[in-house]
Simulated scan of single mutants.
Amino acid sequence: MAVSVFIAATLRRYYPDYDPLKGISIEVPEGASVEELLKLLGIPSSEVKIIMVDGTHARTDTRLKGNERVALFPAVGGG
């Protein structure tokens, strides 16, 4: 099943050919978790601080159903 993934900021270094306008379309096994998706992408889960699935906050153990839009964000610093 396919999901669309959008990667923000410093997480993009793990996917060098990433196009922010298109995102990534990736096939994952049915019922895969966000954690499994991160492993497929080569992004350490420890670096992902915010996960959104179809605009709703999610966790690494959230199961995917297919055709979702997954957005991944690192910690944001500032002052």
Rank of each mutant, 00 (worst) to 15 (best):
Y14D: 09
G78P: 09
I7Q: 00
R13N: 06
Y15V: 15
A75I: 08
P29A: 13
I51H: 05
P44M: 04
G77Q: 11
L38S: 04
T10M: 06
A58M: 12
V76K: 08
M1V: 13
R13P: 00
D61V: 07
P20V: 05
A58W: 10
T62E: 03
V28M: 13
I50A: 11
R13S: 12
L40A: 12
A9C: 07
A71G: 08
I24N: 04
Y18H: 06
L37E: 01
S4I: 04
G79H: 08
A58R: 09
R59K: 14
L37Y: 01
R59G: 04
D17H: 12
D61Q: 12
F6L: 03
P29R: 14
V76G: 01
G55K: 08
N67V: 00
M1D: 05
T60A: 11
K22C: 03
A58G: 12
N67E: 15
I43K: 00
V5N: 01
F73N: 01
V48F: 10
G23I: 09
S45K: 15
D17W: 05
P20Y: 07
L37M: 12
I24Q: 09
P44Y: 06
V70H: 02
A75Q: 14
S4V: 07
I50W: 08
I51V: 15
L21D: 14
D19C: 04
P16M: 11
M52V: 06
D19W: 07
P16S: 12
M52E: 06
R59V: 00
V28H: 01
P29S: 14
G66E: 08
G79Q: 10
E27L: 08
K22G: 01
I50M: 11
A9H: 06
I7A: 04
V5F: 02
R59N: 08
E36T: 10
S46D: 13
L40D: 02
R69A: 11
A2G: 00
E36V: 00
T56Y: 06
R13I: 11
P74H: 05
E35I: 01
V3K: 02
E30W: 03
L21R: 14
D17T: 13
T56E: 14
P44A: 07
P44T: 06
E27R: 13
I24K: 13
G66L: 07
